Amino acid sequence: MSLLQKTKDLSPAYFGFVMATGIIAIAAHQQHYPIIAKLLFLVSCIGWLVLAYLYTYRAIRFSKDFTTDLISHSKGPSFFTTVAATALIGSQVMLLYDLYWVAFSAWLLALLLWLILTYTVFTALTIRRNKPTLDKGISGAWLLAVVATQAVAVLSALIATQTSQPWRLELNFLALSMWLWGGMLYIWMMSLIFYRYTFFQFLPGDLAPPYWINMGAMAISTLAGSLLIINAPNAPFLQSIKPFIKGFTVFYWATGTWWIPMLLILGIWRHVVRRFPFGYDPLYWGAVFPLGMYSACTFVMLQAMEFSFLDGLPTVFFFLSLLVWSVTFFGLCRNLAKLRQQL
């Protein structure tokens, strides 16, 4: 069996690799490690190109399997990693190289993918006849829709800083709208996920890595809010609601911070108490991304809110995310080596 034949079973979550790599590249740029930032940027770009080719091939060659995953309660939301990954490529280009038109092209593609996936996935999940029960159908992966929405908000805010009026105003309005919509979507979904947590049986196998998106979705919401605060002087309507944006940005950050100890405790319960085995899974990139995003969002929030007492957090989480990324990347390389031997 060729490598392309293997795409028949390609997980929709693999663009999480690009997301995780991209945000850690941004965090490295913030922490003044330009070599690491540019190296990870290159890796994320290569990953995006390879995965874009493989997913396009799968969509054409194995259209039935692709469509089945797209309208699945368990796998459909994972396709939103394509939106977040594309937007993060644009954000890296903007922050590392200040290439406006490349970033703008990535923004257009991310926005198009967001529109297609949002109204395809959620329409399909709404009208399909046979639906799973809540405990079987929902997971932390659903919050990737929030991450994708906020990733577009982040890139919109970044591009707005280099855009002349009146388009600067409109881009900031789009960023604000996406930020608010992402927050509302999180409230809807998190209510269901928390209900699933506390009122249904929870086995070690149920605690998949995408549950870290519980925190990651709040972290990227914090990043988007912080950028809106920074952009406020050049957008009068943002200036008028600046206290509101500041309040919700801190709200998002505090919620994301609350999740970190909770997820660590549940991870210890899963792997130490219940002895659930470790093994490489593409879903683990969904656990790497939130750590890098927490570093990046806290760094920008400190600038926007002028909080000096949290200075050490971005650095700590940058090195932690880099360590976890390295371990997960090693697992990916081992998995690819095994796959090559099977071909």
Rank of each mutant, 00 (worst) to 15 (best):
residue 278 F to W: 13
residue 157 A to I: 05
residue 201 Q to A: 12
residue 124 A to E: 12
residue 327 V to F: 09
residue 318 F to D: 02
residue 158 L to S: 01
residue 33 Y to H: 11
residue 129 R to E: 15
residue 144 L to S: 10
residue 21 T to V: 06
residue 224 A to P: 03
residue 3 L to H: 10
residue 198 T to N: 13
residue 86 T to L: 04
residue 176 L to K: 02
residue 119 Y to W: 14
residue 160 A to N: 05
residue 342 Q to V: 10
residue 334 R to Y: 10
residue 321 S to F: 00
residue 313 L to E: 04
residue 206 D to W: 03
residue 236 P to L: 06
residue 159 I to N: 00
residue 181 W to V: 15
residue 292 G to A: 02
residue 266 L to Y: 09
residue 85 A to S: 12
residue 144 L to F: 08
residue 260 I to C: 07
residue 130 N to A: 12
residue 173 F to P: 00
residue 231 N to S: 14
residue 120 T to G: 10
residue 279 G to I: 00
residue 236 P to Y: 08
residue 217 A to F: 00
residue 303 Q to E: 13
residue 137 G to P: 10
residue 213 I to K: 09
residue 204 P to H: 12
residue 241 I to M: 14
residue 233 P to N: 06
residue 18 V to F: 02
residue 242 K to C: 09
residue 286 G to D: 04
residue 184 M to P: 05
residue 5 Q to S: 15
residue 43 V to G: 11
residue 1 M to R: 06
residue 320 L to I: 07
residue 137 G to I: 06
residue 270 R to S: 04
residue 138 I to W: 02
residue 5 Q to L: 14
residue 29 H to S: 11
residue 190 M to C: 14
residue 28 A to F: 01
residue 212 W to V: 01
residue 327 V to K: 09
residue 94 M to G: 00
residue 235 A to G: 01
residue 155 L to A: 04
residue 276 F to V: 05
residue 42 L to N: 13
residue 42 L to R: 09
residue 134 L to M: 11
residue 214 N to C: 10
residue 22 G to T: 00
residue 182 G to R: 07
residue 111 L to T: 04
